[in-house]
């Protein structure tokens, strides 16, 4: 691990200001992704700003009838919150489908959104990877690509976003609240928060240098049947091959987002009108223009079957 200096921030504004004062700095929350990558020298910050002392660990009701989730709320506590379990079941289910009890006790809401890809070439510093070393090439294209993306891919990168929580946040229309080093704040809809790789795959999201996430807000409960289905290589403690987050209403209409298929949680609002016509029609619209590799083309069929299973479950079959 490269050496770094360390400070504890006392307020969100102070943390954001400290980040621009120290070029090469990073915030550290749970540490479960950042520290892992620092040990491998994939992340090499020269200064760490510990944000764990910031009072951003509350879940509060909003005036609009939704919830405001502090950036530091741990994944365990978010899944256990009574309101989340009752009104945002798809979020509680996505959270408990991720990682392990120990890791969920550490992982924070903001850190989870910002976790980096699990592409094995990104993790192996002997391999080319445009995300880790821009311009070095992509090891996965033409390499082992079973876990990789099938939609929204580019010539430069076919990585997926590994978060389960973010897929549920996408179907719930969450909004990411931030503060910037100049003290200004903004609200970024989750749909715009993560980006597609394009020719700059080293950029995962819209945050600017020093911008700190303070909260994630959820609109008022959507109702409906809320389902999170994660398909993985073993029954527990594995990242998704693909996942489905769905909210389905009694009349058969609804919303759906997919995990494990793209560089960001994948949702195509226009495709959702196909939901009452069944999984095949829905998949065709959701994955239109897909560019799978020979190794991950199975994901097309897997998505269709997972959607069929979710639609059947919603009907009570």
């Amino acid at each position: 691990m490269k050496a770094f200096t360390f400070e504890r921030a006392n307020s969100p504004a102070e943390a954001a200001a400290a980040a621009v004062r120290n070029p090469g700095s990073r915030f550290i929350a749970g540490g479960t992704n950042l520290l892992d990558l620092m040990k491998l020298e994939i992340e090499t910050p020269s200064h760490l700003i510990d944000v764990n002392g910031l009072a951003l660990d509350k879940i509060e009701a909003t005036a609009e009838g939704g919830l405001r989730i502090g950036a530091l709320v741990r994944n365990t506590d978010l899944a256990a919150d009574e309101r989340v379990r009752r009104d945002y079941g798809v979020l509680a289910r996505a959270l408990v489908a991720g990682a392990t009890g120990q890791l969920r006790n550490m992982a924070t809401t903001a850190g989870n959104l910002l976790q980096r890809t699990r592409c094995p070439y990104f993790y192996d510093t002997n391999q080319p990877c445009n995300k880790r070393a821009p311009g070095s090439g992509c090891g996965a294209i033409g390499g082992f690509s079973r876990q990789h993306a099938i939609v929204g891919v580019s010539e430069a990168c076919i990585a997926t976003h590994p978060s389960d929580m973010a897929v549920a946040m996408r179907v719930l229309d969450a909004v990411v609240e931030t503060i910037r080093p100049d003290g200004s704040t903004r609200s970024i809809p989750i749909a715009e928060f993560h980006r597609l790789p394009g020719d700059e795959p080293h950029i995962d999201h819209l945050l600017t240098p020093g911008e700190l996430i303070t909260a994630v807000t959820l609109p008022k409960p959507a109702g409906g049947k809320q389902i999170y289905l994660k398909v993985r290589d073993r029954a527990s403690f594995a990242f998704a091959l693909i996942s489905v987050a769905a909210i389905i209403f009694p009349d058969g209409t609804g919303r759906v987002a997919l995990g494990g298929v793209a560089h960001k949680p994948w949702r195509v609002e226009e495709a959702e009108s196909e939901m009452p016509r069944g999984a095949k029609a829905l998949t065709a619209r959701l994955l239109a223009g897909a560019k799978p590799t020979p190794e991950n083309a199975f994901k097309l069929k897997l998505v269709e079957r997972a959607l069929a299973s979710v639609l059947a479950e919603a009907k009570g079959a």
Binding site: A3, T5, F6, G24, P45, H47, A133, P134, E200
Partner: peptide
């Protein structure tokens, strides 16, 4: 690894690379 990376890099890469963090002494 650094030496290999440099010889393989097309010229574009340098412009795109994120600014390197300054090297600090162990603290």
């Amino acid at each position: 690894t650094a030496a290999v990376a440099v010889t393989m890099l097309p010229p574009l890469a340098e412009a795109q690379a994120p600014p390197a963090a300054p090297v600090v002494k162990p603290a």
